[in-house]
Design a protein around this nucleic acid. Structure first.
Lengths: 228, 228
DNA sequence: CCAAAAGTGTTTGATGTACACCCATGA
DNA sequence: TCATGGGTGTACATCAAACACTTTTGG
């Protein structure tokens, strides 16, 4: 009865994460220099352990390397070309993650050489990691156009101009601020706070927070989210 | 140097396909009774071979069981909960496929017990195959709302009423035929033929074909595809 | 000539897009 | 008082939604 299992070849299974961050100006991806190929940048990755599920493993690896928990994590794609890892055949399930850069800064582990790279200025990457990043960017654009996931990249309190800059960065464009704010506010997902941002502009922009209850509900519904 | 590879556990890697078909009335999934669990229906599946990529393997398995080639095949999700297969830990990469039922009929292999089930009347399935089907239906609805993939489920020549019935089946609703045909035709993806369908209605409906050149271009672009 | 399905047009409301001016504030 | 970024409103075009009648033809 087990024969049909025993005849089969097993494969190594890795998890790699494309970690997006936004520094207020441009969209960034977190890359590391690791183990085998010290001279090449690569995605954060690790191996699946026998007692854990795929997403659980991706979350563990992300925690080990950044100290972050409770971040947005979504399966991107399984990569399995025979020679993608030239040493041993490995299947990699890629995840993409959206983190708030400020949270990360405070928790950065010094053990790893890690750096944020603008998505428009990436180095050569290990194996097929470049394809993974390309696909992740495509998916982020696709998804952010319909679901309000952009908030995951901003601090808990943010201003409308900050949010617009984020969308400008994601789509490499320049949305009209009037249409942008009308559309964003029409979702009723934002709660205006009484507080203004200090120090950036003279007038100061109002801070907003996501209405978490509504946000959780809407995560699965369709929303057309790109204005002009 | 290979140490970090050697320390790692390998896993079996399976591919399972959710195969959708449309018989003119309702949306169907093709299920089989196979090997180990003769009494339970399951998805079509098989093992990854050492020399093939994931999509290649999924296409091979689909061919072995149905004789079909050149079908629409898209990676759905990688499933890897530790005990999803209670005998040996197996990671399964699920694909979903859209086939033209008429093509399949002629090529059906008699080796396997296979049957089409309405998506609204599915039996209990092996392992987590039920979750896979649920996710595939969700993905098909999501995707068909924006990309004109519905054609993959119809014969090369089809009528507008047939296409509407397909969309009615996918979304379990009843679109307004006037709005539906206006919207579909406005894409300019359909070429009207000089021929009418015979035998179904007295008047007969015109056949249409997909403009393949345009279709390939648009496959990756956004199209809001659900009318009323 | 009748039943059954095919085919087509108009009106109304909602949403998207383009565009420009005043406001608040710190220096 | 002025420079800088924040905030808002309106007109027009486009698209979605609701809705009903005429056409064709085989029996």
């Amino acid at each position: 009865m087990l024969d049909q299992y025993k005849q089969q070849h097993p494969y190594l299974l890795a998890l790699d994460s494309i970690i997006f961050g936004f520094d207020g100006e441009s969209l960034k991806v977190l890359l590391v220099k690791r183990g085998v190929e010290e001279q090449t940048w690569s995605l954060m990755g690790g191996w699946l352990q026998p007692n854990e599920g795929l997403e659980q493993a991706a979350a563990r690896i992300l925690f080990e390397l950044t100290g972050l928990t409770d971040v947005y994590l979504e399966q991107l794609y399984a990569f399995g070309e025979p020679h993608r890892d030239p040493i041993v055949r490995t299947i990699s399930v890629a995840y993409f993650s959206l983190v708030k850069v400020a949270d990360y800064e405070s928790k950065i582990s010094e053990t790893f050489q890690a750096r944020w790279f603008s998505i428009y200025d990436l180095p050569i990457l290990l194996f097929d990691h470049g394809d993974m990043v390309d696909l992740a960017i495509k998916r982020l654009r696709y998804k952010a156009a319909q679901h309000p996931i952009g908030f995951e990249l901003l601090p808990d309190k943010f201003t409308i101009p900050q949010l617009k800059k984020l969308y400008d960065a994601i789509y490499n464009t320049n949305f009209d601020k009037r249409n942008f704010s009308r559309k964003i506010l029409s979702t009723n997902l934002l709660i205006k706070l009484d507080e203004k941002q200090k120090g950036f502009s003279r007038r100061g922009a109002y801070y907003y927070q996501v209405d978490l209850a509504k946000y959780k509900q809407e995560t699965d519904s369709f929303l057309n989210f790109i204005p002009t």
